[in-house]
Simulated assay, not measured.
Amino acid sequence: MNTNSRLEQANDNAAAFWLAQARAHGWRYRVRPGLTAVRCARTPDDSQRFLITRPYVQPADVEKQLAELLAEWETVRCTVEDPYGGLDLTGLGAVRMPPMPVMAREPGPVDGASAELPVVSRTRDGDVLTVDEAAHGDALALVERTIVDGFPLPARQPWTRGEALPERLLGEPGCRAWLGRVDGAPAGACLSYDDGAATGVYWVATLPDQRGRGVARAVLRTVLAHAHPDRPATLVATSAGEPLYRELGFTGQGTTNWWTFTSPGG
């Protein structure tokens, strides 16, 4: 089995992205061969993250490691990402979500993309649409609020500046934030993370009143054109976003199974 495929590059990028968040927030984390765990701890019931990054021979061994971490960290909630589909976490009380495609886009130019930032275009109904990198704290706060309200991230609502995306995140090498505005007002956003092998795209969000106007497309095109177009781009697609990603050149590399766990008292 190829353990350095686009799928594994996507896994590695996601693990590195969560480790960057752990450093920015001051969270504990654990890295083991084939498993990265982040103990998100803004509040005791924050959803922790466990990412399987490499194929496993014995699912029971991975399940045992997860059970030990859940006990050690007194986990109330968590999400486990399993791109290989061999785990059965029902014994831990976890519920499997519908599988989602892991997608990659090969390196290369983006048709019609502007070489300069900010990128200025028009929405489908003619309003001015600009996309730029959010390179300082105030701009990152706008990205944060757009993601919290547009993705959405219910656990971060109501939005409080810096709780989801602390400004220290901009100091993490490879981490960049992107903001789309319609007539100057925030409309869409996402994050990207470059780990030297691939550029991962995360939390592509459009505010509810701006959907259907081409905002997400403009933000993604800008990221693909300006965040290391010489590297493959990777992401995990929702059913709503998959058609757009395919139009922009992403192809499926496999599916990931996400398990959610909530302790009986959580």
Rank of each mutant, 00 (worst) to 15 (best):
V76A: 09
V76H: 14
C78L: 09
C78W: 05
T79E: 14
D82Q: 07
D82V: 04
P83T: 01
L89Y: 03
T90G: 13
T90R: 13
G91H: 06
L92C: 08
L92Y: 02
G93A: 04
V95S: 12
V95H: 12
V95Y: 02
V95C: 06
R96W: 07
M97A: 13
M97H: 12
P99W: 03
P101M: 09
P101L: 13
P101N: 08
M103F: 12
M103D: 04
M103G: 02
A104I: 03
R105T: 00
E106S: 14
E106L: 15
P107V: 06
G108I: 05
V110T: 08
V110N: 02
D111Y: 14
D111W: 15
D111P: 14
G112N: 05
G112C: 12
A113H: 07
A113T: 00
A115L: 15
A115D: 11
L117G: 01
P118L: 05
V119F: 01
V119A: 08
T123C: 12
R124V: 14
G126P: 03
V128D: 06
V128P: 00
L129N: 00
D132A: 12
D132K: 01
A134K: 10
A134R: 00
A135H: 13
H136R: 09
H136S: 05
A139P: 08
A139D: 03
A141I: 11
L142C: 14
R145Q: 15
R145K: 13
R145M: 15
I147S: 08
V148E: 02
D149F: 12
G150K: 01
G150S: 04
G150H: 01
F151C: 04
L153G: 06
L153W: 07
A155Q: 02
A155Y: 08
R156S: 13
Q157I: 07
Q157M: 14
P158K: 05
P158W: 10
T160Q: 15
T160W: 07
G162T: 00
E163R: 05
A164F: 15
L165C: 04
E167C: 11
R168L: 11
L169C: 11
L169W: 11
L169N: 06
L170C: 02
G171R: 12
G171M: 15
P173A: 07
G174C: 12
A177K: 03
A177Q: 05
A177T: 03
